[in-house]
């Protein structure tokens, strides 16, 4: 068992989107009547062209945005009904997020960046330190613990971001273009990392343009076009290659 053990039973739906639409102003909807379920242990890749609604979908699941219609349930929590504080607590306790540009705090060390979600959640100091050390070791970046992110390579920074995302043992890991700012070698490392995490049972939702990434680490791929689900490869682990072949 890795440090990323999921908290939800393997067959239970972690994400349940029902008839979700999101409109910004009078233009066409960014998401249009999307219904989607993600079960625990799945690695879902959301692909599609720019403006297809990928980031909107991710923001809705992360509780960073609210749907204009429909419901978003994650781990049994109606995310669309949470207030600001509830959303923050939800993000802190149930999800981890990885971004294209890492979004590490430059003036905190790697160790302090990783500790941050636990500290915000009020985790006991000793427990948080132990968990951070475990993650840094597991992700192979413990030698950089005292370094500042600016001194690390892109791949290393993204590993730090992953460690931070896993700090509070989230049921769901959301990754927004996690290899988008990396060179090929670093991107490969991150792909392996995500694949490994999913293999250990971590549920992952991945938004990406990188079809190779989707192909290698997603168990299921959903393609969005103009805010609607154009294709869904289904949720069978063996189906990993179906959408990208």
């Amino acid at each position: 068992m890795t440090p990323t053990a999921p908290a939800v039973a393997p067959t239970a739906p972690v994400i349940d989107l029902r008839g979700v639409s999101r409109r910004y102003g009078a233009g066409p909807p960014a998401l249009d009547d999307v219904t989607l379920s993600v079960r625990a242990g799945e690695a879902l890749a959301v692909v599609g062209p720019s403006g297809s609604g990928k980031s909107t979908l991710l923001n809705l699941v992360a509780g960073l945005d609210r749907p204009s219609a429909g419901s978003v349930t994650v781990g049994g929590v109606r995310v669309d009904e949470l207030n600001e504080t509830g959303s923050a607590r939800y993000r802190r306790d149930r999800i981890g997020m990885v971004f294209q540009f890492f979004h590490l705090l430059d003036d905190l060390t790697v160790h302090d960046n990783v500790l941050l979600p636990a500290q915000l959640a009020g985790m006991p100091r000793a427990e948080a330190r132990g968990r951070a050390a475990e993650l840094l070791r597991h992700l192979g970046i413990e030698r950089h613990a005292a370094a500042y992110p600016g001194l690390l390579s892109g791949g290393e920074r993204q590993r730090v971001a992953v460690a931070r995302a896993l700090m509070n043992r989230p049921v769901l890991l959301l990754a927004d273009e996690p290899t988008g700012a990396l060179d090929t070698a670093s991107g490969e490392q991150v792909r392996e990392l995500l694949t490994g995490l999913n293999a250990d049972g971590q549920t992952i939702v991945l938004v990406t343009h990188d079809l190779a990434l989707a192909r290698s680490c997603a168990t299921r791929t959903v393609e969005l076009v103009d805010g609607r689900v154009a294709r869904d490869s289904g949720n069978v682990p063996d189906h990993r290659q179906a959408m990208t072949s």
Binding site: R89, R92, M97, A121
Partner: peptide, 16 residues
């Protein structure tokens, strides 16, 4: 604002 966004994405509540 970017740091604020990061902290909020990590679960910093409005009160925090």
């Amino acid at each position: 604002v970017r740091d604020l966004g990061i902290l909020k994405a990590l679960g910093m509540t409005p009160r925090q």
